[in-house]
Amino acid sequence: MKETRLWILHLFSGFVIFFLLLWHILYMHYPVIMKGFNFGVSFPLMFSQVTARAKSAGFKIAYTLFLVFALYHGFYGLKNLLIETKWGRKAEILIVVLLSIIAIFLFIYGVFTTFKIGG
């Protein structure tokens, strides 16, 4: 039952990040075309632009949600891939523990960098 819930959460997080990812891709990787639609900026990697959007509450919320759902979706998916290696039950436990530690570290670091820059 627990695994079913985790799987449903995997699907739900995939559905949420579909929209966040499209927004992120269009904003960061299609800046010239999107500027034509009055969305985004021409040079999103300029430090002034990075700090400007990081100060926006909307961006902070979106980045945090993105982090939560993308890390859960990614690392739960990776866990499912790795346990197909058939390395045994002990290896499965080790994989779950290691991936959880990495995901939690990335989440804490990601939230720290999201909020620190905005001051």
Binding site: V50, A70, G74, I102, L106, F112
Partner: peptide
């Protein structure tokens, strides 16, 4: 999916330098 998990790990660490 496998490639993207590896990418997001590196991406979060490198892009964190902005802080």
């Amino acid at each position: 999916g496998f490639i993207l998990v590896l990418y997001i790990t590196v991406h979060i660490i490198l892009m964190g330098s902005r802080a």
